[in-house]
């Protein structure tokens, strides 16, 4: 039990370094491409969190959609608009220090609240065995959550159609345009 706890804490520390370190690099890196790669690192850290929190399926979804689709889309867009990444380009606006101040205050308020609150934590028996099978999640998605499930399919259709309309390159290369927005 003790060893298990130690392993968990060790993993937590490593993952926190990945997530927060990656996150800091995302917002400070001068090179946008590097920032996007650090985003992948940070997302991978969050994926590890989900594993630690016994949400294995969510971790796979994070890898599949966030890292596999969204990050690639972002990397691709950065490459398509790469004209902007001339070396020496300032990536920070002039109000960055105001932003830093505001953000720091937000963070302090949030952390104080988080530690002051007495959370309605479930009893220990329930905490021990969350073990939710994927089949249960799937049944929930087409059961109680069927309505939002259908709505999000409509949303994805809208995003897809709209993205193709907006980003499609005119001319005689329809195939390439499809691929760009084919996410």
């Amino acid at each position: 039990m003790i060893i298990e706890h130690a392993v968990q804490i060790f993993a937590f520390v490593i993952l926190t370094l990945m997530t927060l370190g990656g996150g800091l690099a995302v917002v400070t890196s001068r090179n946008l491409f590097h920032a996007a790669l650090f985003l992948i690192l940070s997302l991978a850290g969050a994926m590890g969190y989900y594993v630690l929190l016994d949400a294995g399926f969510l971790a796979v979804v994070q890898l599949l959609i966030y890292i596999g689709a969204i990050s690639i889309l972002i990397l691709f867009s950065i490459m398509l608009t790469r004209g902007l990444m001339m070396p020496g380009q300032v990536q920070r606006n002039e109000q960055w220090w105001i932003a830093a101040l505001v953000v720091f205050l937000t963070f302090v308020v949030l952390v104080v609240t988080m530690w002051q609150t007495v959370w309605p934590i479930a009893d220990t028996e329930a905490l021990r065995a969350p073990n939710i099978a994927i089949a249960q999640l799937g049944a929930a998605l087409v059961g109680p959550y069927a309505i939002p499930f259908e709505v999000i399919s409509a949303l994805l259709l809208v995003a897809l159609v709209g993205a193709i309309v907006l980003a499609r390159e005119e001319g005689n290369q329809p195939a390439r345009a499809d691929a760009e927005t084919g996410e």
Partner: peptide
């Protein structure tokens, strides 16, 4: 989610 994991890991090679 074994087979889903396979698909997900495939994304890394794109990266």
């Amino acid at each position: 989610a074994g087979i889903l994991y396979v698909v997900a890991v495939g994304a890394l090679s794109e990266v």
